[in-house]
């Protein structure tokens, strides 16, 4: 029987209770929730911490059960909102990129793909190596829990080459562009009324291979399963300006993420960091003018034509 919010609060684990009593943690979550236009209530804070714990529990479940049990779980308790989209991807005669942020039990979504599509297409998960990010150490074992049709690809120069090779081989690569990493692979795109750092690798791979892109979000259900919310798969219509295409495509991916996170922010692993990830406000926002001097200082630091930028900003505001 599904538990209501009050019952859930009553049986909150010790770790969640401890975190809820930590004012810094709660303040960070609430400040981030406020950015999503979601009510920054204690209930929402609890739901976020609870969702994070559930995601861990799903990973432990995958590691502790037999392959047969896991297959049964994936068959009966993991659903997709659009079987047509799922089938379209499975049948696509070309490279496919699954895009999901670090949202809910995303590893289960990946396992679902391995389970349903693995016979036709190998699933490759692209992520930071455990040496770079120790939290990913668990992924390899979890995603390999079915024992076949899956490969990890670590995010480095060789990994990028390998990902292109897999895509050209018409395999599936899963990508997670919401990692916050100020490296050469990062760009900025609009997100919750500001510019934020985004990984450009997904767009880069999609454009280089003309892959079919499908975004998805894994949401835990009250009955202990997982429901995968899929968006319509698409291939990006490229122009002659590759860098503008990377920006536009990444912006599109983040717009989708913004929509999902606005509806149910509690499942996003990086929710707590959202406030600190939001940089310059978008130029149509009220707060933008206060940032103009900083922008022009950066323009000068980069030895760019400050007048041209200033004229452009004025032209935009008069538009």
């Amino acid at each position: 029987m599904a538990l209501g919010p009050i019952q859930q609060v009553k049986i909150a684990t010790k770790s969640i209770k401890r975190l809820l009593l930590d004012t810094d943690t709660v303040e960070q979550i609430r400040a981030s929730l406020a950015q999503t236009s979601c009510q920054p209530s204690m209930k929402k804070c609890y739901q976020h911490l609870s969702s994070m714990e559930k995601a861990d529990q799903f990973n432990q479940f995958c590691l502790s059960r037999s392959k047969a049990d896991l297959r049964q779980f994936l068959q009966n308790k993991v659903t997709v909102n659009s079987p047509d989209y799922w089938q379209q991807v499975s049948n696509f005669d070309g490279p496919v990129i699954f895009v999901t942020p670090h949202y809910g039990p995303f590893t289960i979504g990946c396992l679902k793909a391995v389970f349903d599509m693995g016979e036709n297409k190998t699933i490759n998960a692209f992520y930071d190596s455990p040496e770079k990010n120790p939290t990913t150490a668990i992924y390899k074992d979890v995603l390999n829990a079915l024992g076949e049709n899956f490969n990890p690809i670590y995010n480095d120069k060789r990994g990028l080459v390998r990902a292109i090779k897999c895509l050209k081989n018409k395999e599936i690569v899963t990508m997670m562009p919401d990692v916050f990493d100020l490296s050469g692979q990062s760009i900025s795109v609009p997100f919750f009324g500001h510019f934020t750092t985004a990984m450009a690798g997904t767009a880069f791979l999609a454009l280089k291979t003309n892959a079919l892109i499908m975004q998805g979000y894994c949401v835990p259900t009250k009955s202990g399963g997982v429901h995968c919310v899929l968006e319509q798969p698409f291939q990006y219509q490229q122009t002659t300006d590759f860098e503008q295409d990377v920006y536009q495509l990444t912006s599109r991916l983040f717009l989708s993420m913004e929509k999902q996170i606005s509806e149910a922010p509690e499942h996003w692993i990086y929710l707590r960091q959202l406030r600190n990830r939001l940089g310059l406000p978008l130029p149509q926002s009220e707060n933008f003018n206060a940032s103009k001097n900083k922008i022009l200082a950066v323009v000068k630091n980069l030895n760019m034509n400050a007048k041209e930028i200033e004229d452009a900003l004025n032209a935009f505001s008069n538009h």
Binding site: F195, Y247, G279, I295
Partner: peptide, 11 residues
């Protein structure tokens, strides 16, 4: 620099 680039591409 990324944010400035994004701003230019945005407008």
């Amino acid at each position: 620099a990324n944010q400035l680039e994004a701003l230019i591409r945005y407008i």
